[in-house]
Each structure stands twice: as structure tokens, then as C-alpha cells.
Design a protein around this nucleic acid. Structure first.
Length: 332
DNA sequence: CACTCATGCACAC
DNA sequence: TGTGCCTGAGTGG
């Protein structure tokens, strides 16, 4: 699942390609037929992400709340406008692989029909025709419009030119504006939604009065929105904090450093679509690290391997049902 | 091919 | 604390 950065990228795609347009909705799988019927034909008015949740507003005070959970994903097909703030176009968003990149890189065509695989650092195109890779769809791409639904598609959102399929979400429901407000009220601050300075104060205040371990607080969406298991491990390592330290025992400066690092990593993640947590490395070391699978994080998914800084074996432990990776020496 | 695991979370006990 | 949901990638035979 997508940690917070992916959800913000998805919301931007909807803002760019759906907001201001009438949307035909359906539930090819059937499980969301009733909800889909409620918004069918309405114009989408807004697309917002808060932490790992996304809210799409439709005419008539109807909102769609989607949470991808661990397995959910959006597949985009057809012609999409690539948000200029998103460096790489992706057919599939949300579902990511072990390296933390959005899956399903797609071929991007310019107006002349010349194509190139979009990637970080590639020239940004204002407009792109996106088609699914064969591996993703099992079909030879753009022969049909709209595309034949593949697999269990809970919800399909269709404009004249763009198709978005939602599969495997943990939450997908129609809400009233009040329910949306209530849902967002339960969430901790999101640096890309809230005023960053106020958000930092909120975060610091909550962490510093909790007896709970900081490693659990970072994963608690009521404390801070958008952090998942990968960012949790990496943030703690980067700050040199023992995951088991009580929130109230983490020095205030350190809590602030954690917050500011999260703001930085989230921004980088939204821009690049990748969970870049080793940005401190120089060019060569960074390229080397990126060249190998499972070799792009400080501690995440590195159980038993030597710490990149001190050589101590990285430890993995089960905490609240999730794997917690950390260096017992650097994070003493 | 069969099987395990996973970036999450709601719920029951 | 444990279970269920839901899908896809990775792994080992």
C-alpha cells in the first residue's frame, strides 16, 4: 500500500483529469453497484488526499472516500493529462513493489507519436496517451474503448477519454460532507494539507505527552497522517531514535527533526513517485544503492544485513503486528 | 505451480 | 493480541 505520497499523486491525477468533467461510474465487479449508481453522470468537483485516504467530491454534496489498504490500486487508462508536478506518468498507482516505486511504468507518447518510457528526469510532457502494460492488463493495450475490465474492478470512473479502475480497496464508500469532515477530523496532520507550522506544533504536542513508543506513534494515523511501515523505519533511523522510546521521552528537538524530515521525504515522494529515503548519499553511492533490489533503504527490509553506517546487523521485530526494522547501534 | 509475504486497518475477544 | 479482508509480486520446487 501506498503510503501517503502515492495517495497524493493519485489525487493529483484525478484533479487533472476528472475534476470539472462529468463522470460515468459503474462497479464491474458488482460489490459497489449501489454507490456507483449514486454518483453516475455527475461532475467531479474536487479531488483531495489526506494521509492515506482520498476524497472525491461530486455534484449534489456527494463524496467518495477511498482507502487503498494494503492491496488496493488505481489503474488509469486512456488519454491523461500528466500533472506537471508529477515527473513520471504511471498507469497503475498505489500498488507498489518492494523498491517502493509505483508499479506499471507506462509508455508515454508525444503528439508526434514518438514514444519514450517516462522516468524520473525525463522531459515532462503536458499531454500523454497512457496505455497499460501487457503484464498489468493481460490485454494488448488500447484496442477497446472503454477497456474491458480485468480482474475484480470494484469501481470504474469514466470520462470521455479517461478510465480509472479501482481494485482491492479496504474502503470505498459514498459520504455526506459531514461524514467527510468527521473522517478528516480523526486524522493527524498531513504536511501537504495543513499549514506546516501549525501541523508541526500539533505533532510535537501530541507525541510529547504520549507514553506510547515513538515507533508506534509514527504509524498512528491519528497522530500523523500518511506514514507507513517503510517511512516509519527510515525516519527513525535517519533521526537516530530508538523505536521503543516513549513519545514523551523523545527530546523536543528530535521530535521536530522527525516531523521536518517527514515533510521533506513526503514532498520528494510525491514529486518522484518513489520512496527516496537515502537522499543523503552522493551521486555514485546513490546510483549504486538504487541499482539493486532491496538496496535502497537504510534499514527497511534489511534484517540481518550490516547497517550501512556502523555495520551492526539490522534487527527486525514484530511490533503491533508489523515488521519493525532498526539498527540497535545507531538507534541506541 | 504452490505458497508466502506485503507499503493497512477494522474488528472481535 | 489475533483474525479477516483483498490483490500482486516474489520465491522455491
Amino acid at each position: 500500500m501506498p503510503e501517503g505520497h502515492s495517495v497524493h499523486r493519485i489525487a493529483r491525477q484525478f484533479a487533472q483529469n476528472y475534476v470539472g468533467r462529468a463522470v460515468r461510474t459503474s462497479s464491474p465487479q458488482g460489490r459497489f453497484a449501489e454507490g456507483a449508481a449514486l454518483i453516475d453522470g455527475r461532475e467531479m468537483l474536487a479531488a483531495r488526499a489526506v494521509g492515506k485516504q482520498m476524497f472525491l467530491e461530486f455534484e449534489g454534496d456527494l463524496w467518495l472516500r477511498v482507502h487503498l489498504g494494503m492491496y488496493g490500486a488505481w489503474d488509469f487508462a486512456g488519454t491523461i493529462e500528466v500533472d506537471p508536478t508529477i515527473a513520471s506518468a504511471n498507469g497503475r498507482m498505489g500498488q507498489t513493489n518492494q523498491r517502493g516505486t509505483d508499479l506499471g511504468e507506462v509508455e508515454v507518447f508525444d503528439a508526434a507519436g514518438e514514444n519514450s518510457l517516462s522516468s524520473i528526469g525525463a522531459p515532462r510532457r503536458a499531454r500523454a496517451h497512457v496505455r497499460m502494460s501487457e503484464q498489468t492488463t493481460g490485454l494488448p493495450a488500447d484496442d477497446h474503448w472503454p477497456p474491458h475490465p480485468v480482474g475484480q474492478v470494484r469501481l470504474r470512473l469514466l470520462t470521455d477519454v479517461t478510465c480509472a479502475d479501482l481494485r482491492g480497496p479496504t474502503a470505498c464508500e459514498i459520504q455526506t460532507p459531514d461524514q467527510v469532515v468527521a473522517a478528516i477530523a480523526k486524522l493527524g496532520p498531513d504536511p501537504l494539507v495543513d499549514d506546516v507550522d501549525e501541523a508541526e506544533e500539533r505533532f510535537v504536542a501530541v507525541v510529547r505527552r504520549k507514553p506510547t513508543a515513538i515507533g508506534l506513534l509514527l504509524m498512528d494515523q491519528a497522530v500523523v497522517s500518511g506514514i507507513g511501515n517503510v517511512y516509519r523505519a527510515e525516519l527513525l533511523f535517519r533521526a537516530g531514535v530508538n523505536p521503543y522510546t516513549s513519545g514523551r521521552d523523545v527530546p523536543e528537538d528530535t521530535v521536530r527533526a522527525l516531523w521536518r524530515d517527514w515533510v521533506r521525504l513526503l514532498r520528494i515522494g510525491v514529486e518522484t513517485g518513489q520512496m527516496m529515503t537515502m537522499d543523503g548519499l552522493d551521486g555514485d553511492a546513490y546510483r549504486r544503492a538504487m541499482a539493486h533490489r532491496d538496496d535502497r533503504h537504510w534499514v527497511y527490509h534489511r534484517a540481518g544485513l550490516p547497517c550501512r553506517v556502523c555495520g551492526t546487523a539490522i534487527v527486525v521485530e514484530e511490533a503491533a503486528g508489523r515488521k519493525l526494522y532498526w539498527c540497535p547501534s545507531c538507534q541506541a
